[in-house]
Computed example of a mutant assay.
Amino acid sequence: MPADTPVLPPRRYADLQLLALRARDGDVPELKLSAKGVALLEALLAQPEAVSLSSISQLAQRHGVHPSRLTRLSHALGLEGFKALQTLFRDDLSDSAFYSTRAQRLLEFGETPRAEGAELADDRMLWQQEMQNLSAAVEALDTAQLARAAVAIQRARRVHVVGLRASFGAAHYLAYYLDYLRDGVQLVSPQAGVSVEQALRLGEDDLVIGIAFRPESRMSVDYCRLAVEQGASLLALTNHSASQLAALTELTLLAPAEGAFFFNPMSSLFMLVELLLSRVARDMGHDAVLALRQREALISRLHVE
């Protein structure tokens, strides 16, 4: 069977994409979908994260349809029901083709922002969407959770910060400046020879700060899960409340990352890290100032540039 032949029922997210593209041109006669049904399928494909994380009622409300429409769409695709359709989206978000699939839907389903006659329209639209992520992070910020997180960081005997792949930059930033404020901070990095087994040394007086966006790094999740099993506390920084990290703890801070980006937008995550660092420093008061002065004095003495 040729690689570009539509498959019914679809077995992968890529099959859904191909079906939608061919159905748009009327090239799949065996697919009994109306124009509205095709439009609904395309709308779902343009927002795979929302489909994978929402209930059928939430998704129906988001698209202005009755939940039965989603069930009928699933049956028209040859699937047993909405859960089977949702599984295709969830599997895609967890596999190694996450970014290429996102790029394909941005290009083929028209989600990449366009505006006639505006040379910088795409860039400005992305900037606006990132600003919306920043605003959403602030509006949805649970200040009680932020306060609890700051207290947990100060009271912990040791703090391990783990965030790999795309999240490593934020993890390094957080660990670097936390080390200015307190002792016992360690950045978990395979490059530094730190492996999952290091979590075995953690106990109930320790804290792990796990950072992971979809697709979540398996090592990050495994490290956090093992730490929790050892009795350590976990602070999760993620872009969705249904993440694997969030499922491991009651202490979660969310950094929304929506929009037509080829890769994960990170501005809201770094802002969240800055808010967390500022809260810790503010709570520490003069102790934070003293810690910073000691570090600056050492840097000066060692002529570190």
Rank of each mutant, 00 (worst) to 15 (best):
R105K: 01
L77Y: 02
A281W: 06
S189L: 09
A39F: 12
E80A: 13
A140I: 05
R282H: 08
R158K: 13
S267I: 01
M284I: 04
R124F: 10
S52Q: 07
A20K: 11
A297Q: 06
F261S: 07
V28K: 15
G163I: 07
P48V: 02
L21A: 14
E49G: 03
Q128C: 04
E130A: 03
A170R: 07
A150N: 12
L275F: 13
G78R: 11
R214T: 10
R182M: 13
L126I: 06
E296G: 11
E216P: 14
A115R: 08
P9M: 08
P190S: 04
G231C: 09
P67T: 11
Q58E: 15
L93K: 03
R24W: 09
G210Q: 07
L79A: 01
G184C: 05
L276F: 03
S195W: 12
G26W: 02
S167Y: 01
L77V: 00
G110T: 00
V162I: 15
L234E: 03
R158W: 14
A147W: 01
Y223D: 09
Y177L: 11
I299W: 06
H286I: 05
W127L: 09
Q191I: 02
M131I: 05
L59P: 01
D91H: 00
D142T: 02
D183P: 07
P2V: 13
S217D: 15
R72V: 12
E296K: 02
Q230W: 04
L41G: 04
L254I: 12
A137M: 12
F89L: 03
R90T: 10
V289N: 02
A60K: 07
R293V: 06
A255Q: 03
F262L: 09
